[in-house]
């Protein structure tokens, strides 16, 4: 039984882990995506700023979703992961609304008999969420400048 949720509350990590707990699992992998205080510029491919501590100062993020579609997509990703790897359980939780630096915006957890497939599945799940699930973030700077993020290299090529 997979655990899929969009929530306006802080992500309850203990609950996420508990939801994938299984007597036949030899490993559980948990990924948390957290809010960075400094974000690279959106077109960083062109202006390679990697390794540079510069970039935009984020006071907080606001996440918005096309909820019905996002939930369906997340359910389907969890099912696909269970078909592609011998998983016992999958948890996908994304936070919506205002998220402060260091807080988690997304949690992916999987359990499986062996660690290898758990790591692979968790990576595939977070990559797929970021590419296709209908959720958007707005970066809010300390000067109250609010900018929706629409990366030019995301999604479209995926399907």
């Amino acid at each position: 039984m997979n655990f899929i949720e969009l929530t306006d509350q802080p992500i309850d990590v203990a609950k996420v882990l508990q939801s994938v707990s299984h007597p036949d699992a030899g490993g559980e992998v948990l990924f948390l995506g957290t809010t960075r205080q400094f974000t690279a510029y959106p077109d960083s491919k062109e202006q390679d700023r990697s390794g540079d501590a510069g970039g935009q100062h984020t006071a907080f993020l606001v996440y918005e979703a096309y909820r019905e579609m996002a939930l369906k997509q997340m359910e389907r990703l969890a099912e696909q992961a269970c078909q592609n790897w011998p998983l016992k359980s999958v948890a996908l939780v994304h936070r919506l609304g205002k998220v402060m630096p260091q807080e988690a915006s997304v949690a992916v957890a999987v359990s499986s008999p062996h660690r290898e497939e758990a790591f692979q599945a968790a990576k595939w799940l977070i990559d797929s969420i970021k590419a296709d699930v209908t959720i958007w973030k707005q970066e809010n700077s300390p000067s109250e400048d609010a900018q929706w993020v629409h990366p030019t290299n995301s999604g479209a090529a995926h399907e």
Binding site: M69, W136, W148, H150, P151, S154, E159
Partner: peptide, 29 residues
């Protein structure tokens, strides 16, 4: 673009009762 929570191509026919959604590049995670 999406119709009823499913991505569709631009050549997909639209019925008058359809609810469409324009899906800008996503940035969740």
């Amino acid at each position: 673009w999406a119709i009823g929570s499913e991505f569709v191509e631009l050549d997909c026919p639209v019925e008058s009762e359809h609810s469409l959604a324009m899906i800008p590049p996503v940035s969740g995670g």
